[in-house]
Amino acid sequence: MKKMTVVILTAALAAAIMTGCSGNSDNSPSNTSTESTTSSNSSTVSTNESKANNEESKNSSKSESNTSKENSKGSSKSESTTSKSNDSKENTKTEKIAAIKYNNVEIKIDMEVSPLLEKLGEPDHKETIEADEENSEESYSYTYDNMTIYAYLKDKKQYVADVSISGPGDASTANGIKVGASKDNVAKIYGKVTDENMASYEIDKNVIMFIFEDDSVTNISLSRGLSDEEL
């Protein structure tokens, strides 16, 4: 009887031990699986954060690159505009025109008189100058306000020989100098004035001359320059 009781207790103890081992075995894989899942999630989060940081870095780099390009383009355009503006100013300062302007009509040497008079209108006074010791051929003059046009005859047509501006009024040089302008204004457009009473400038084989009195222009004339033979 005692032996049987010992056997039963031994069997029960063995069963309890086996049951405990089985429980521990079942719990171990579950913990391992949880730890693995947690690690995987952590890795995924880290990867996503890394990708997000990379995207932000790329976007920031693109933005800085675009900004740099825009600034570069803007600077280049600004420099180009400034350069063109300076070139334009220089051209305006150096460009001298051999012409007289009256009521927005330009008058140049050797221009045919007939169509010119149609643009200018009827002159205030006109005159035929007979040939004499000083003038070998007949010539003509047409006076408008403060300006007189002198013409010569060739092939039965009249052409501009000289133009003179004698007082204040609408007539001026094509560069805007009128009687009454200062000597400094003349120098700024046409060049240095070396004589106290007059200054002349050769432009396109023609000559523009200014007469001064008290540093102001009193007379302006446009005429043909002397040829090499005449010199």
Rank of each mutant, 00 (worst) to 15 (best):
M1I: 11
M1K: 13
K3P: 04
K3L: 11
M4F: 14
V6Y: 00
I8D: 12
I8Y: 05
T10R: 07
T10Y: 00
A12N: 14
A14P: 08
I17S: 04
G20M: 13
C21L: 10
S22L: 13
G23W: 09
G23V: 10
G23L: 14
G23F: 04
N24T: 12
P29V: 04
P29D: 12
N31S: 15
S33N: 09
E35C: 07
S36G: 08
S36E: 15
S39T: 06
S40Q: 12
S42C: 00
T44I: 08
T44D: 02
T44L: 01
E49R: 12
S50Y: 14
K51N: 06
E56A: 07
S57P: 04
K58D: 08
S60C: 04
S61Q: 12
S61W: 06
K62L: 10
S63M: 11
N66M: 10
S68P: 05
E70T: 11
E70I: 13
N71P: 03
N71A: 10
S72W: 10
S72T: 13
G74I: 09
K77I: 11
K77L: 13
K77W: 10
S78Y: 06
E79C: 05
E79K: 14
T82N: 14
S83D: 12
S85M: 09
S88R: 15
S88D: 13
T92M: 05
T94V: 03
K96Q: 09
K96N: 11
A98K: 02
A99Q: 11
K101A: 13
Y102V: 02
V105M: 02
I107P: 02
I107W: 00
I107S: 01
K108G: 05
M111G: 02
V113W: 11
P115V: 07
L117C: 02
G121M: 15
K126F: 03
K126Q: 13
T128I: 06
N135Y: 11
S136T: 10
S136G: 10
S139N: 06
T143Q: 08
Y144H: 03
D145P: 07
D145W: 01
N146G: 03
M147Q: 03
T148W: 08
Y152V: 11
L153D: 14
D155V: 02
D155A: 10
K156Y: 01
K157P: 04
K157H: 13
D162L: 03
D162R: 06
S166G: 10
G167W: 01
P168C: 03
P168K: 15
D170R: 15
A171I: 14
S172W: 02
A174G: 07
G176I: 09
I177G: 01
G180W: 00
S182H: 08
D184E: 04
N185D: 12
V186H: 07
I189E: 05
K192Q: 15
M198S: 10
A199Y: 00
A199N: 01
A199V: 01
A199P: 01
A199R: 00
S200C: 05
Y201D: 09
Y201P: 02
E202K: 15
I203M: 02
I203K: 00
D204G: 03
D204E: 15
K205P: 03
N206T: 11
V207S: 14
F210Q: 03
I211M: 08
I211A: 06
E213L: 06
D214F: 04
S221V: 13
L222Q: 04
L222N: 01
G225V: 01
L226H: 02
L226M: 09
D228T: 05
E230T: 12
L231R: 07
